[in-house]
């Protein structure tokens, strides 16, 4: 049952990801990216970590596509030009190289999923991983202030 769910989620995710990186229409690419991330949230549920699934749904499947759509409209870039021939060759080569690196992944046969409850993950985040957690919050604050400062219209 979980194998069927995995194959269905994985196949649809890959189809939408390929569509997101190949379609010339940027708006369609952004929506396709949102669906890709939404399906990855389903994969996180399958992995037994509902906290990660919720974060993936809220941040990657909702906030980031909205931001992407805004920036597509603001820069009037409705379409992405067709790639050059050497770019396609380099892209296929890099994809093949990545798959060669992941060839050894097939050998892992561990089948026992250890689910993680959001309570355990949260208390661990605030005990063992407290310093990186605080650094991440400062990073987000810096990113927000930096984005506002960079995107502000200069006067005069």
């Amino acid at each position: 049952m979980s194998l069927t769910a995995f194959y269905a989620l994985a196949a649809f995710t890959l189809v939408f990801a390929v569509f997101a990186v190949t379609t010339a229409n940027m708006v369609r690419a952004a929506f396709s990216l949102a669906i890709t991330f939404f399906l990855i949230a389903g994969l996180y549920l399958l992995l037994g970590s509902p906290a990660l699934a919720a974060i993936q749904f809220m941040v990657n499947a909702s906030a980031i596509p909205i931001m992407t759509l805004f920036i597509i409209m603001m820069t009037r870039s409705r379409s992405s030009g067709a790639p050059r021939t050497w770019q396609i060759a380099a892209g296929l080569l890099a994809a093949a190289a990545a798959l060669v690196f992941f060839k050894g992944a097939v050998g892992h046969h561990d089948g026992q999923i250890n689910p993680v409850s959001p309570e355990l993950l949260g208390s661990n985040l605030l005990q063992a991983a407290l310093l990186p957690f605080e650094v991440a919050s400062v990073l987000l604050l810096l990113a927000m202030v930096g984005a506002i400062a960079l995107a502000r219209r200069r006067s005069g």
Binding site: V18, A98, F101
Partner: peptide, 24 residues
């Protein structure tokens, strides 16, 4: 675990292809 890692590899290959071929 192999299923998930292989799927991550495929997704990474798709992303790499996009980084190298996109013009926008």
């Amino acid at each position: 675990l192999g299923h998930f890692l292989l799927f991550s590899g495929l997704l990474m290959a798709v992303g790499l292809y996009g980084v190298l071929t996109r013009r926008n």
